[in-house]
């Protein structure tokens, strides 16, 4: 664990130094993050101009859900997607050989090898909007639901990370895997709304095939106090199971890797 923080700190510093070379990027990123948040909020405003509840969700609750959506999105774009994207390239051109010879756990190394630090803006903006939603809500959020929210958010992180590791590991067998992450991004936009509003077939796709339900809807349900005990348990169990499965799958992948260049 100490090893993890030490390495993460190093890669974070490298990422920060890279970005400092292109300072204008900060303003562009700020603009882009604000714009996409504004578009999402405007969409909610247009829908709630016509109704005052969507599938049982109030406006304030949907704004909190949007906050969770950006929080998870920002975290994926901060480190998971850039690192694993780079890993997939390294499998293709053989640079992965160097990573595998390093004296640290290879899965850990490839998972944190690249930070896009300005994506932290999405995380911050997500937290702001999330609190905005909580503050405008009629009833106050209890300590218990805040605690459950923390648990579901941890589970969401573990599930999304494991899902990405499994996708990335496929690169050991299939070359053109970047395209598959496109599927994730397309489906992830469905998470701006609670998955409970979708028809069953779509709800199942968003729960089992692409873990949007556990990444966004479940934590938002915890915040609005509509999470059932069963859902909470399945989120935690799925998180634990996926962490082990992805670890096993990763090891299987490394075993079958034979190097592309060297």
């Amino acid at each position: 664990m100490i090893e993890f923080f030490r390495l993460a700190n190093v890669f974070l510093r490298i990422g920060a130094m890279n970005e400092m070379a292109y300072r204008a990027n900060f303003w562009i990123q700020t603009f882009e993050s604000l714009l996409s948040m504004a578009t999402a909020l405007a969409t909610i405003a247009i829908v709630f101009n016509q109704t005052d509840s969507l599938g049982g969700w109030q406006r304030a609750e949907l704004i909190s859900l949007l906050g969770v959506y950006f929080l998870v999105l920002g975290t994926i774009n901060l480190v998971v997607s850039p690192s694993l994207g780079r890993f997939m390239e390294e499998v293709v051109d053989g640079r992965l050989d160097f990573t595998l010879t390093k004296p640290a756990d290879a899965q850990l190394l490839v998972s944190i090898s690249e930070f896009r630090i300005w994506k932290i803006l999405d995380v911050i903006l997500g937290l702001i909007v999330l609190s905005m939603g909580l503050l405008t809500k009629a009833e106050a959020t209890s300590f218990a639901s805040a605690l459950v929210f923390g648990i579901t958010l941890l589970a969401a992180g573990a599930i999304v990370y494991s899902f990405w590791i499994i996708l990335a590991t496929l690169a050991f067998w299939f070359i053109r895997i970047e395209n598959i992450t496109m599927i994730f991004w397309s489906m992830y936009t469905a998470g701006r709304w609670p998955v409970t509003i979708y028809p069953p077939w779509l709800k199942w796709i968003l729960t089992l095939l692409v873990p949007v339900a556990f990444a966004v809807t479940v934590p938002a349900q915890a915040l609005s106090g509509r999470l059932t005990f069963n859902t909470l348990m399945s989120a935690v169990l799925l998180a634990v199971a996926l962490v082990f499965i992805s670890r096993w799958f990763w090891k299987l992948g490394v075993k079958s890797y034979s190097g592309a260049s060297a």
């Binding site: 395209n179 598959i180 496109m182 599927i183 991004w185 397309s186 489906m187 936009t189 469905a190």
Partner: peptide, 8 residues
């Protein structure tokens, strides 16, 4: 795969 986005 690109089409999935324009359908969803």
């Amino acid at each position: 795969i690109w089409m999935i986005g324009s359908i969803i």
